[in-house]
Nucleic acid binder design. Structure first.
Lengths: 216, 216
DNA sequence: TTGCGGATGTGGACAGCGTACACCAAAGAT
DNA sequence: ATCTTTGGTGTACGCTGTCCACATCCGCAA
């Protein structure tokens, strides 16, 4: 980005970056053509050389936000106890996926709101966070925790539950609740789905006070 | 509402009614001061005699939308099989609550989007749909299906799951999926949470092809 | 009955938004 | 060295929410 040329040099990515910065606190509503071009120091219409309209810009920023979600979830996955049995580790990985999703939603609600827009999972172009979920569920089958029959379409209960909780915790009734209450509810909710999938309770019942981890 | 008086007569409710009509297809975005006052045949500023700002109007319409959700869910509850055992009926009632919520979201997505705004459940002013869920869960305890320990805070897993699924089905990746696929997923998802709560599988495993009911 | 005050609706204005159209500046190819 | 393509500017239109001053009507009190 040369200093003060007539041409900006890399306006497209500059707008996306500014968009991420703005959306972090303001959510999707903070992504205005005028607002972002102003932040980048350029005329509003300049953006139209790189994005068809506001919606296209929002989608581009949203894709970036999805990467951030996946990165946060991945970090949490790599932090789990390596000394556990394979079966336990697989369950813990799934739990990390769920709690990572929820944690991200609560700590980065602007980005989270954005990330959920224009989700097109399914056969085409699975978004990164979705892929982590698929891998975790496959891990349960590989370690014999889940039968292939039970695993089929297990993505939907899992994603539904953690996403729903994330929405309740960011835009819904849990919005202004004591964070520790929300933490506890999150752990409860994630364990409930996992049990619902058919995972033996022995693999998920933690002792009270939890196995030493900041959760949700 | 006399024909063409200077004063409208009942502008407040007229605006809410127009708002419901507009939001049904357009969601919250369709609730504009100018748009609604125009629909009612009055000046934009007239609305400010009844609502502090746009947000207040939206909240008022949202409250109405919540009533609609509750009504739809209630209808579904009253339609369940009366010949079942008390325990089975209690489980069916909980399922009806969940599937009713999802069904409403999918068939009235504009109203649903609106209904979720300004949810303030918890000790204060529980919204009608939430109350139906509480009652259903209490029913499980009363019929001995659920122990009081398991019932505690069971609202969150339930609400999270059905709400999350509703969101996936209306704004998320299931948005443009074949409705029959979504129906099946909805049934699967609801059964998964219920099982996760600790309900014996015998009370929820339906035979394939389902027990003769249009679902989700 | 008159008149007055509070409630309600009008009219005009302002700032901000997304975006279409015409124009201009610079980079790259011939 | 000129021509074309790419990318940025300037102006303008219609839309939005909201503020201010003013007009109008209803109900109550004198």
């Amino acid at each position: 980005m040369r200093a003060r040329s007539y041409h900006h040099g890399d306006l497209r990515t500059a707008l996306i970056t500014a968009g991420l910065r703005a959306a972090r606190s303001g959510g999707a509503a903070a992504l205005g053509m005028r607002e972002l071009t102003r932040a980048v120091g350029v005329t509003p219409n300049a953006a139209y050389r790189h994005f068809a309209d506001r919606n296209a810009l929002v989608r581009a920023v949203a894709a970036e936000a999805q990467e951030l979600v996946a990165r946060a979830m991945h970090e949490r996955i790599t932090g789990i106890n390596p000394d556990a049995s394979p079966a336990q580790a697989a369950v813990d990985r799934l739990r990390a996926v769920g709690l990572g999703y929820i944690h991200f939603a609560r700590t980065e609600r602007g980005w989270f709101e954005l990330a959920f827009l224009t989700q097109e999972a399914g056969p085409v172009a699975a978004p990164p966070p979705y892929q982590l979920l698929v891998d975790a569920l496959d891990g349960l089958v590989a370690t014999g925790v889940l039968t292939p029959e039970r695993r089929a379409s297990a993505e939907w209960p899992c994603w539904s539950t953690v996403h729903g909780f994330a929405d309740l915790a960011t835009r819904g009734p849990l919005r202004h609740q004591d964070p520790r209450v929300v933490d506890a509810a999150a752990a409860r909710v994630v364990d409930t789905v996992i049990r619902g999938l058919g995972v033996p309770p022995a693999l998920l019942l933690r002792t009270p006070a939890d196995g030493g981890s900041e959760n949700a």
